[in-house]
Structures are given as C-alpha cells and as structure tokens.
Write a protein that binds this DNA or RNA. Structure first.
Lengths: 117, 117
DNA sequence: CGTATCTATTGACAAATATGAATGGAACTG
DNA sequence: CAGTTCCATTCATATTTGTCAATAGATACG
C-alpha cells in the first residue's frame, strides 16, 4: 500500500559541520499529499491515462461499449481500470438501461494540475 | 453463456439502435501516454510526492541527509524512492564529497501539467 | 416466461512494488 | 593506514497490481 507519512525532526550532522544550510520541511499537508498521490497513482497506467484522454476529448459521456474495443484488454480488465478512475474521483458514471456511460470529473485533474504548477 | 467477447470488432447493439453516437479514438500517441503514465506513476506515492514538494519549495539542491529525517522510513527506502524519481526524470542528483544533493527537473512536471490542461 | 446483451464482480495467478536489514563503495578524518 | 560517515545497492519478503476466465446482476426483447 502507499507509505505512511510521518514527519520527524531534522537530525544533527555527525561532526557538527552542516552538510547544507537549509532546513527543509514539507509543507504539503499529509492529507493533501495523499490526495495528490491518489490521483497521480490512478493516472499511472497507460490504459487509464488514455481512457481519460478519450473521455476528455469527447467532452461528453461515452458508453463503455465504445471504450472496450479501443484497447487490447478484456472487458473485465477495462472495467477494473474504470473503477479505479471512479474510486479516485477522476471519472463518474451513469447507467442508462443496459449501458454505462463514463465522463470526466474535471475537478480531480485540476487539483493535480494546480499542485504541479 | 460463453463470453466470447473478442475485443477487436465494435459490437453492435441488440436492437439495432446505437448505444451512443460518437465513435471515439484515443489520440494520444502510445509513446506519450506511456511517458505521462510513467511520470504520474512516479508521483503516485505520498512520500515521493512530498519529496518533490520539498525539493521544489526549496528551489535549490537539497542534501539527502536533510531528506531522510523528514520521513518515517529507512534510509534505504528513501534512497529507493529517490531513485524512482530519478529514473522517471523528475529529479536529478549531484554528488559532492560524501553528500548527495537532489533537485527537481521541472520539465517532467511541466509535461504532465501541460497534458492535464 | 426465457433468452440475449452489457457491465460489474469474483477468484486466481503472475508480475510489480514498497520496505528494511545487510552490505558495498566512496570519501573524509585522525 | 584504520575507522567513520553518507549514500546506493543487493537480497529477501510481504503487499499490491494487472490481467483474464468465469460468473453474477441488471435490463431489454420476444
């Protein structure tokens, strides 16, 4: 699983002489770091990244039956990928009869993009 | 019941009515998708993400001996994380005597940020 | 009703990952 | 030289991930 994140104080240099002058601290809150990492991790697969690209370029809701033949993986594998994106809050889905439609929730991507800039 | 879902051909809807009108294609090149996924995957861990944050906020080169005590993991584990970031092209490092200094290579993060926007 | 279709889930497995102890290697110190 | 310090690497292990076959669930149709 993802690693824990406990921030302990700075150690002192062995011989008294500092290896470098700055004392650095992470100033991302733990919760934010984990949220960003969650989004990034969900994007960390070529299939999922391409899924996002497809959904985003289409700017609408896309049926799963359109997505499946675009990739060289089984239907169940694609379903797993879509679920990962859904759990990470990057996409949402909607059922209409037999079909399921997926679409991008832009907020998550914007969060990460903002953090990167 | 035999799910003979071959993935190449687009399946047609049962009653002839399309489930959705658009035919979608991924227009990210495979290589780009894999590169973006590589960057995102490297960021997909709270420790590595916080490392990036620390290095970036400092806007200079930071000694590993400053980084290790910030996290609740062993020195070797942190070294593993730094290597992952290095291999992904997100950070670079420089040796000075006993110490190793790490710093962010902004290009990789900008690539991903640009892709997200 | 029964059957077919679409999607999600379960179960199983190999591969990848995160982690730390132990070790190696380089460079400084006395 | 011998000892010490910092960092990287190797090795081992537990967990997570990606994948597919099979199945389940839901809904449409005749």
């Amino acid at each position: 699983m993802s690693s824990e994140l406990t921030l302990t104080p700075k150690q002192k240099s062995p011989n008294g002489e500092p290896c470098c002058e700055p004392v650095v601290y992470p100033d991302v809150e733990r919760a934010e770091a984990e949220r960003m990492a969650e989004i990034a991790k969900a994007l960390g697969d070529p299939i999922r990244l391409t899924l996002i690209d497809v959904l985003r370029k289409h700017a609408g809701k896309v049926c799963v039956c359109e997505l499946v033949p675009l990739f060289d993986v089984s239907q169940s594998t694609l379903s797993h990928h879509l679920k990962k994106l859904r759990v990470a809050g990057i996409v949402d889905s909607e059922r209409q009869g037999l079909w399921a439609y997926y679409y991008v929730n832009p907020e998550a991507l914007e969060e990460l993009s903002a953090w990167l800039s």
